[in-house]
Design a protein around this nucleic acid. Structure first.
Length: 422
RNA sequence: GGAGGCGUCGCCUAGUCCGGUCUAUGGCGCCCGCCUGCUAAGCGGGUUCGGGUUUUAUCGCCCGUCGAGGGUUCAAAUCCCUCCGCCUCCGCCA
């Protein structure tokens, strides 16, 4: 949610931001008009309510005829107050309807444009030349099957498309990745958190996943629970309706959770393998900090993401996501895309967003800073999304004999340097 | 799943039976000031959150806010209903 006072002060900035996203700038004016109506309704209501209160005191003190006369007047007033109250409520609802449609203000430096207009910030590592090494790389599905690490066939039997079993070394790979990631996070000062994966509508709504993204969220009809698509939801909502002491900021959490995604509208996309699945485990970094520190914090999250991938020796590139592809909460977003040899392209493995005060306003998360309270900024970033990283490891570290070299930090948990075919 | 209890402005708490000077009591903590060789104690003041208003620096004034939402009433912390959360006991269970 955007601050209505900020809109009043500088509506042009909001209009420009909407335009950059390819969204409707006239929503800004609709919000301002709704706000005007709201304020006038409030003035009317408060005047009537004030009169009602003072008459009420006279009624309490009066006796006999005088009391009866006063009662007649206050009865009238009561209906007026009631309808004025309804008017206020309706006006507030109209404003909030419009406000919820407005996306966050984009950072001025974000590249303007659609999905294809991202800016590549950096390449790290060099994709291997398998032709020069004299063999054709296998994809992660074939590798996973040969190694006894991934079973998608039986998952299809049990749960359907877009599910998988991690088996033997596959399961160990997940545990190893989780261990390394959590150790890194704790060393960097994060508090590890295992979160609920079922949340109430308010949590989903507050984090901004019930808007355009709603079709990708699983909903348990009978109990009105949503399954989280990322622990960003349960971590953001963790401090909802709280006022945080400024001296405790920034707060760093590392959420460990299973994530669920419907993947509606992706039929035919990534149908093979475990790149796009309905259920996976992920460790997500989440920060609450002062708004003025958010841009610097965003860079730190990106640095932590890179630190994690660097030690796995996977080639990747960092992109600055274009304004039209940000999602409504983000002011700026950086993705890291890992090289996938058999696809011959880079695929997203992490994503970090600066949501500024946008989520915090919806969730009622503020900071006490001296005598004032104001919304905090929230930021999130993927530390590790298990299946995609497993894909990257298997494909990038495969060897001519069909085995896969294990990156050094994972060797302890795996108990081996090389995963051999079974 | 069954039965009962509870939810008051940081924490604790008075008020709820029997609706109206409740403009929500008191304590602790915290903040400011006074006093004081220093500290402690003492004294005075302040301390929910949201919104409106004044050319929103400040001060002030006003409205809402007693877990949330409805209802009854001229009037609700107080009466009624629904929901949420916590606690206790029983049952079941990894």
């Amino acid at each position: 949610m955007l601050d209505i006072r900020q809109l009043r002060d500088d509506p042009d900035a909001a209009r420009r931001s909407q335009t950059a996203r390819g969204e409707d700038p006239s929503l800004v004016d609709a919000a301002l008009a709704a706000d005007e109506q709201r304020r006038s309704a409030i003035v009317t209501f408060e005047a009537l309510r004030s009169e009602q209160k003072s008459l009420g005191k006279q009624v309490a003190a009066a006796q006999g005829d005088e009391k009866q006369q006063l009662l007649a007047r206050t009865k009238e007033l009561a209906t007026e107050v009631k309808s004025a109250e309804v008017a206020v409520r309706e006006a507030e609802q109209r404003l909030s309807d419009v406000q919820l449609q407005l996306s966050n203000l984009v950072e001025p430096d974000a590249p303007v444009g659609g999905e294809e207009d991202f800016a590549v910030l950096e390449h790290v590592g060099t994709p291997r030349d398998f032709a020069a090494e004299g063999f054709e790389p296998k994809d992660h599905v074939d590798l996973g099957k040969a190694l006894g690490a991934i079973d998608v066939e039986r998952a299809a039997k049990v749960s359907g498309a877009r599910f998988y079993y991690l088996t033997g070394p596959g399961a160990l790979l997940e545990l190893a990745l989780v261990n390394v990631a959590i150790q890194q996070a704790v060393a960097a000062g994060f508090t590890p958190m295992i979160t609920p994966v079922l949340v109430k509508p308010a949590a989903m709504e507050g984090t901004g996943f019930l808007g355009q993204a709603a079709e990708n969220v699983f909903h348990l009809e009978q109990d009105d629970f949503y399954l989280i698509g990322t622990s960003e939801v349960s971590l953001a909502a963790y401090h909802s309706d709280e006022i945080l002491d400024a001296s405790t900021l920034p707060l760093h959490y590392a959420g460990i959770s299973t994530c669920f995604r419907r993947e509606a509208g992706t039929y035919g996309k990534d149908t093979r393998g475990i790149i796009r699945v309905h259920q996976f485990d992920k460790i997500e970094m989440f920060t609450f900090c002062a708004p003025e520190d958010a841009v610097a914090e965003h860079r730190k999250l990106l640095a932590w993401e890179r630190q994690f991938l660097d030690q796995l020796e996977i080639p990747y590139r960092v992109i600055d996501v274009a304004t039209g592809d940000l999602g409504s909460s983000a002011a700026r977003k950086f993705d890291i895309e890992a090289w996938i040899p058999t696809q011959g392209k880079y695929r997203e493995v992490t994503s970090t967003s600066n949501c500024t005060e946008f989520q915090a306003r919806r969730l009622g998360i503020r900071m006490r800073d001296g005598s004032t309270t104001r919304p905090v900024a929230t930021l999130n970033g993927t530390l590790v999304a298990i299946p995609r990283v497993i894909v990257a490891i298997l494909e990038n570290h495969q060897q001519a004999d069909g085995s896969v070299r294990v990156p050094e930090p994972l060797r302890g948990t795996l108990g081996t340097d090389v995963i051999a075919p079974i």
